[in-house]
Amino acid sequence: MFRNKWQLTLTIAFLCLGLLFSLQFRTHKAMDNDLNFQSNETLAAISRDLNTKYYQLIQEVWDLRTQLRLLEQSNDQNKLLVEALKREQQKLNIATGLTPVEGPGLIITIPENDQNYLGYQDIIDIVNELWNANAEAISVNGIRVTGATSFLPSDELSTILMDGKELSYPYVIKAIGEPSALEKGISIPKGVIDYLRNLYKIPLEIKQADKISLPSASAPNLKYSYPVAGKAGEKPAASGEPQF
């Protein structure tokens, strides 16, 4: 393999040289990246740059924090506003009969009787008495009574039309409110119930219930009426809550 005897030793020498070279090469490369072996000017420049960047970042953090706080505040306000509006809308929906409701109340049942005629006026009277006794929602034969509900006699005066639909016996009037207050309010002496019972001998049944479910009425079809500008928004805000 080694034709001349110089080749072996010279190869060993070159091998060692290569080894030393690569070691020094790597050390030098590591030193270039090491801050300990940078010149003072370079270090000062690096330090200055980092300081500037540091203060810029601190400034940025403060700006962003302020922004975050502002956004949170406005978000909270919006949330509160939305919640208030939701509550308002729920109350209005209950008041206008646009949402099904349930709660304690009174059930008045008028069974069919042959002797005496019960007119549409009597139903209106009962409903009015119930409203007067602070009823919050009323239905007649499962139809919700709203501001647009009408009670009329049919042509032959034999039946009652509610919103144009014929009512049939037994008439069931359900009202949500405080049951005892409703009963007390409706059965005052010389009130409509008193007359119906004692004068016309109609066998009314009045029952207090812990839980009554009332369906929702169909939405009113408003074409011609518009809120008066400027006053529409003020009223609910001024009165706070709708009164039942």
Binding site: L10, T11, L15, G18, L19, L20, F21, S22, L23, R26
Partner: peptide, 19 residues
């Protein structure tokens, strides 16, 4: 052969983790 030795030594140095 000596230059081969140089190359070999350099490669060995690069593979070593020692600095």
């Amino acid at each position: 052969l000596p230059f081969l030795g140089l190359l070999l030594g350099f490669l060995i140095g690069q593979t070593l983790t020692f600095t």
